[in-house]
C-alpha cells in the first residue's frame, strides 16, 4: 500500500478512536505512526508532540499536518487531515440532527441540565491547567516562589479588560503575546 493511503487510514483510525480530546489521541497517533507503520522514530514523534502542543489548533490536526508534510508533502497534509476529520463529520452530524430534533422534550432537557454543570467544571479545569502552565512554566516544584510575575500581571490585566470592557478574545490573546514579550525584552529577563 502506498504511503499516502497508509497515512490516510492511520489518521482515519486516530479520528475514529480518540474519544476525549487531544491528549487521548497522542498514544493512538504514536501507535499508528511509530509502531505499526514505522513512519517516524520515537525521537521525531516526541518533537512532533512538543510542537503540536506549542502551536495553536487541535493537537490531532496539528500532528496529522506535521506527519503528512514530512512524509508526503501537501497531498500528505490533505489526506492525513481529511482522515482525522471524516469520522467527526459523520458522527457529529448525526448527533447534531438528533439533538436539534429532540432537545425541546422535557425529559431530554432534564438530562441535558445535569450535563451542563459538568461541562462548566471541565472548562474551568482546562482554564486552571493553562493558568498553572502560564504562571509556573517550570512546574510547581519550587512552590509559589517559582511564579512568573509578568504572566501573573498579564493574566490579571487581561481578565480585568475582559470583564470590564468585554474585549474580544483574539485581541486579548494576541495582545498578551505582544505585551508580555515586550515586557520580558524591556526588563532584560530573556
Amino acid at each position: 500500500m502506498s504511503t499516502l493511503l497508509q497515512l490516510f487510514f492511520s489518521f482515519l483510525q486516530v479520528g475514529l478512536f480518540s474519544v476525549g480530546g487531544g491528549y487521548a489521541a497522542i498514544p493512538l497517533i504514536q501507535n499508528q505512526v511509530v509502531e505499526v507503520h514505522g513512519l517516524m522514530t520515537l525521537a521525531e514523534f516526541t518533537d512532533l508532540i512538543t510542537i503540536a502542543e506549542m502551536t495553536p489548533g487541535p493537537i490531532s490536526i496539528n500532528s496529522a499536518t506535521f506527519v503528512g508534510m514530512r512524509l508526503a508533502g501537501i497531498p500528505g497534509v490533505l489526506l492525513c487531515t481529511l482522515g482525522c476529520i471524516i469520522p467527526s463529520f459523520f458522527i457529529c452530524l448525526t448527533l447534531a440532527h438528533f439533538y436539534y430534533k429532540y432537545r425541546s422534550f422535557q425529559g431530554v432537557q432534564t438530562v441535558l441540565s445535569a450535563l451542563r454543570p459538568a461541562v462548566v467544571a471541565l472548562i474551568a479545569s482546562a482554564g486552571l491547567s493553562i493558568l498553572m502552565l502560564g504562571l509556573f512554566p517550570n512546574g510547581f516544584s519550587m512552590g509559589l516562589s517559582g511564579i512568573h510575575m509578568v504572566e501573573g500581571v498579564i493574566f490579571l490585566g487581561a481578565l480585568f479588560l475582559l470583564r470590564r470592557y468585554k474585549l474580544n478574545a483574539i485581541t486579548v490573546i494576541f495582545g498578551s503575546g505582544v505585551v508580555g514579550t515586550a515586557a520580558y525584552l524591556l526588563l532584560g529577563l530573556l
Partner: peptide, 30 residues
C-alpha cells in the same frame, strides 16, 4: 522554530491571556 527563544517566550506569555479568556467565560457560566 523549536529553539527560537522569542517564539517560545511569546507562546508562553500568550497562555496567560488564554487563561484569562477561559476564566472570563467560566465566571459567566458558573
Amino acid at each position: 522554530f523549536r529553539s527560537n527563544p522569542v517564539i517560545a517566550l511569546a507562546l508562553q506569555v500568550m497562555r496567560a491571556g488564554v487563561a484569562a479568556v477561559i476564566f472570563d467565560v467560566v465566571i459567566n457560566l458558573a
